[in-house]
Amino acid sequence: MQKLHSKDHVLLKEKVIKLLHQNKITTILDFLQEDVEKLSTLAKLSLPQILSIRLEYFNKYSAPVINGNALFTKCIISKKFISTGLSSLDNITGGGIPVGFITELYGLAGSGKTQLLFQVAINCASNNEGTILYIDTKGDFSAVRVQKMLQAHGYSHKNMAAVLMKIKIVHIWSLDELIEFLRRIKNRTEFIENLSVILIDSLPCLMFQYLGDDCKVGLSALNVFVNYCNYLCKEMHLSIVCVNIQTRWVDQNASDLEDDIESSVSKETVRIEKRNRCLGRYWQHIPALVLLVERTKDCENGSAEINISVTKSAFGVSNLSCTLKLSELGVT
């Protein structure tokens, strides 16, 4: 809570502040909540004078109003997307990973989310100036795999090293640690030069640690995390990609209603598989772009086809999808 300060307003002299202090009005909030007439008698100032101080505070602390034109100009001069280097993926998302927003990648376990993330890290690092930060919460990052992918794409040793140098990895094992880490990036106590993309693989590994606790500690921590992410996205022009998972459950009683009519017919239970995007309701609205990763076909030689569809997008039409190939080469 901010304290009243003599620099805030010309009328707010040390003497006045002292008087207010004696009456337990120390913070700006105390001042604004107090009755104006009472303040006027306490501070020995006229009513218009008190009102002018109040107005000054309101002006200073309320969110600024920007007109549409200025906002639009700001929007067109800043970079909006970072290309993923995968043209079909760029097409369906409207240009790649949005800058200044949170993107989510979700899918079943083993569907290829991590591999896609490796590829995105490689492509972003080789096509852009910026540094890629890979936040690993489940020990999934493999530089050996990344190097093999680079080699398969025909990179020279020198270029390979240059790309690898631009990908930074940090291991984080709890949500508290992640929040503290983001706080340090915000305060610049943890400085990463030219940071442009943060990849978090994966968020549920941290969030699920709070499952089964009756209190809502996890939810409030998630909220703090989201606030830091939003702040970093906007202030440092970052793209943040979070990995989320999908779980399945089976609904067994789908045909019960019809069974009432033909009860003599053998009751064959219809099982319908339902899929659930994890992390709870609050999170569902947070990412600006949500991509679903599905493994659609497994080939003989160990490669697979993965389908990526846009399930939510703040940048244009959703329901677009594309198919990529996951193989020794990486994602192509």
Binding site: S142, A143, V144, V163, M165, K168, I169, D176, E180, I192
Partner: peptide, 24 residues
């Protein structure tokens, strides 16, 4: 608990260092 986190040193590797570590 909080104090422990405050003192945490985050080790940031670049992928080249990580590669060396992994291959060794």
């Amino acid at each position: 608990m909080l104090k422990v986190i405050m003192n945490t040193n985050y080790k940031i590797f670049n992928a080249a260092e990580y590669w060396q570590r992994e291959t060794s």
